[in-house]
Design a protein around this nucleic acid. Structure first.
Lengths: 271, 271
DNA sequence: TCGCGGCGTTTCACATCATGAGATAGAATC
DNA sequence: GATTCTATCTCATGATGTGAAACGCCGCGA
């Protein structure tokens, strides 16, 4: 197909993925504007995207009419307010629980162990969802709605770490770090050391700290703003816990984060 | 009426605002998906938008390829993740937001009422951020991204005042000062009188002019050039509004302006 | 088991619609 | 005031999106 663009810079090969050219071009324009925080002039836009200035102008105008892009001044464009509205709409419709379930089932199928989803509520974590089967007679069951202190659960430790060490000391003073078993972490120093290790390895553990004979691994679930909103955890009888399940839980949690819209490295808003 | 598409119903007159039909149709699809939280089937989409099923399908596919819409299962569509990403980008580029949040939270803590941050966009104000809690069952909630006319909101009046009385008359002529409630200011004379009062006292009010039963107070947020860039407002049910909250909102707005780099008296650049 | 109806998807000849070279307008620079 | 940038508009051209119809798939009921 003889695409008779003069000796214009090739820029990039016309991507064939879009069944409709105009929409593909629209996306290239949005991509470009997304990459540049400052408003761009029509000339640059045309050059970067490889579109004819006339074409770029026409499409940008159409988008501006629907507030998808903002024409800040003649010939100067940036991403528009409509995107903010639609984005918030998408966000408001996300349910962590629903999006987490497939990955939870998969993790459960791989391990055969109980998988929990929990969120923070004050100084405790609350179990929000669970997948377990009758495959094994002996299994760890947390009732949905049950709660537990932050410092004695793998999921809780993730929330403590998120707040930073200053707040951890406040938490310790406030609650007194009441131990539940002989393995529970009862000193701030040990807790901080444990949190540092969690930060390094990417997932948290609970070595019979909530209940003797029960071990857990947990990993963080983050939203589009990079904020910790939930924790995915795996609970097993001590003797059945496998070392490689840590990364496995981490991977499942990352998959859920991705489904929610999390992009590693992105952090918006001030907590 | 049988759904047989032969006697094609116009559904709605093709809106002529988009210079490119495909983009206009895309917007209609996005609008429809925005209105419906649950995923929609192709058949319904085609019916609601008046598009041919084949056309709707083709456009939706193109959008799905770029993740603007999400094809949750064959023939079932909803708004896509890309919108969340782009929306966050837009949001992150409104820097006032971040700097305003601490003061907004403080003001919220002092009053217990909903605090809004808004900016001007054309002849409307757009709500950019909100702090509200579940402390009180009854509260005033503006959706982030929502818009409202300038002359019926306390925040909007600040922007009108900023432009001077000459431009206010232009605005009045342009928009017709459409009233929203029986309290809305619908005459230029009254509007000018209100603006003069706002200028004297340093903050703006909205006495059930947007919605009956709701009152607001707003104050200006200015950048280092002395330009009005945003407005901080407090919305309450009429009976809960306290007279001393005016100065309080003004003080909070001034604090934000200071954080941005505003120095009272400084005014640079044009207009 | 077979046939039927509904739905999403794909196809393809047609003509509508987006295209881009060029003209125009407007703003900055020399 | 001439020059040279832009952004915007115009319009003949044919590439490109259109939609009726055909296809394939599934579930339902006979």
């Amino acid at each position: 197909m003889p695409n008779r663009t003069p000796s214009r810079v090739p820029a990039r090969k016309e991507q064939a993925k879009s069944p409709i050219q105009v929409i593909g071009r629209m996306m290239r324009l949005l991509d470009l504007l997304a990459e540049h925080p400052e408003p761009l002039g029509l000339k640059q836009i045309a050059q970067y995207t490889g579109l004819h200035p006339s074409t770029a102008h026409r499409i940008l105008n159409a988008m501006a009419a629907d507030r998808m892009v903002d024409r800040v001044e003649p010939g100067s464009y940036r991403l528009g307010m409509r995107l903010l509205e639609l984005g918030n709409l998408v966000k408001s419709r996300i349910s962590v629980r629903e999006l987490a379930l497939p990955a939870m089932r998969e993790l459960h199928a791989q391990t055969g162990e109980t998988v929990n989803l929990s969120v923070r509520h004050d100084d405790e974590i609350v179990y929000v969802e669970r997948t377990s089967s009758g495959r094994s007679a002996m299994r760890v069951v947390h009732v949905v709605g049950a709660r537990a202190a932050l410092h004695i659960t793998s999921a809780g430790k993730l929330f403590l770490l998120e707040e930073g060490f200053a707040k951890v000391r406040e938490y310790a003073k406030r609650t007194g770090l009441v131990p539940h078993t002989k393995n529970s972490i009862a000193s701030v120093t040990l807790l901080e050391r444990d949190l540092a290790r969690i930060q390094r390895q990417g997932w948290a553990t609970d070595n019979e700290e909530t209940e003797l004979g029960v071990r857990c691994v947990a990993a963080a679930i983050r939203d589009d703003g990079g904020h910790l909103i939930a924790a995915l955890s795996l609970s097993t009888p001590t003797e059945r816990m496998k070392p490689h399940w840590g990364p496995l839980v981490k991977a499942a949690a990352d998959k859920i984060s991705h489904a929610i819209g999390h992009v590693p490295g992105v952090r918006i808003g001030t907590h």
